[in-house]
């Protein structure tokens, strides 16, 4: 393993799915980002922007017949694309773990929560049944599950949504993974439980030193949790940068519009929240130029060619505006 290599480096990831009758469609196009140790990065975008697909590609879980994955995904310098199934399986769950959106449907309904955590532990570590259970109970306790011994013997439907998600996280963390991918971990939860889970994720970095790739559509969650943020739009990276900088001065019109659509906490309330006109293009009908151009207030002739990622300060942006010397101004209101 390469000691200097970043924990996760995704380069020019392109995911192509068959769209029937011999046609194909690129769900994700040339997406690149990297993640260092003990870092939380947000992957933001609306539904259909390709964020979950990218995560599944990292896990090697895209099994749709005819799917093609091009580019490179390196974990500690080791290429994951094309890695044989056995090696990938040893990595999955042990080094890279994932938690999913809906903890009700993501746990097998016919096994107890403890059984499912034991199963993951024993798949990767030479543990006895009793040893695995002891570790499970310990993990559940660390995740803030009250009475973990009894909770382990419960079935998923017998636990509340928050407890289920804690069990899910306990399961994901059971083998001390260095990378945790969290796909919308709070979307299906109540607001109060949401805050607790986010708090738990933040503590994971301190207590376990895990890096987290947090996939969400919620800018508020990103602002609270993430060190850096990557904004996806229609399968392409729109902008990338430290969360503070990105929120203070978004460089991509899409990021700016996303942030504008959050209701401000202070100051006068706008009569009507600004919204982005239109809808994101279907992957099959993506324009050849900038994918955001049809909805962009700044769209012009230069947008007819696909912009590449350009550095601006600490950020990187796929937009021609900064290069043309017309960078967007800093935002007046700081949200949250």
């Amino acid at each position: 393993m390469d000691a200097d290599a970043p924990l996760l480096a995704v380069d020019n990831l392109t995911i192509t799915l068959p769209a029937g009758r011999g046609r194909t469609v690129d769900i994700v196009e040339n997406v690149s980002f990297r993640l260092d140790g003990a870092e939380i990065m947000g992957l933001v975008g609306e539904s259909g922007s390709g964020k979950s697909m990218s995560a599944l590609a990292i896990m090697g879980l895209i099994d749709a017949p005819g799917a093609r994955i091009a580019g490179s995904i390196r974990f500690r310098g080791r290429e994951l694309i094309g890695l044989d199934r056995r090696a990938l399986r040893a990595l999955r769950g042990a080094e890279i773990a994932m938690i999913f959106q809906d903890p009700m449907t993501a746990l097998t309904p016919v096994h107890t929560v403890g059984w499912q955590i034991d199963e993951q532990l024993r798949a990767h570590q030479p543990l006895s049944r009793a040893g695995a259970r002891a570790r499970t109970v310990e993990l559940l306790g660390e995740m803030g599950v009250p009475d973990p011994r009894r909770a382990a013997d419960r079935y998923p439907h017998q636990l509340s949504g928050g407890l289920r998600q804690r069990a899910m996280i306990a399961m994901a963390l059971s083998c001390n993974p260095s990378l945790l991918i969290a796909d919308e971990p709070t979307t299906a939860l109540d607001v109060t439980v949401q805050a607790q889970i986010l708090d738990l994720l933040r503590r994971l970095r301190q207590d376990f030193g895990s890096s987290i790739l947090l996939i969400t559509h919620d800018m508020g969650v990103v602002a609270e949790t993430c060190d850096r943020t990557t904004v996806l739009y229609s399968g392409n990276v729109a902008e990338h940068g430290p969360t503070d900088a990105l929120f203070r001065q978004p460089a991509h019109p899409y990021t700016a519009a996303l942030l504008d659509s959050i209701p401000p906490l202070r100051g006068t309330r706008p009569r009507r929240l600004p919204s982005i006109p239109g809808a994101p293009p279907a992957p099959s009908a993506r324009p050849p130029g900038c994918p955001f151009q049809p909805r962009c207030a700044y769209g012009h002739v230069a947008c007819e060619t696909r912009p590449s990622l350009l550095p601006i300060g600490a950020q990187q942006v796929a937009c021609v505006l900064p290069a043309e010397g017309r960078a967007l101004p800093p935002r007046a209101v700081l949200s949250a």
Binding site: L61, F100, T105
Partner: peptide, 11 residues
């Protein structure tokens, strides 16, 4: 979803 979870566990 739970089948995806099971696969994500490295089984």
């Amino acid at each position: 979803d739970f089948m995806r979870t099971a696969r994500a566990k490295g089984l």
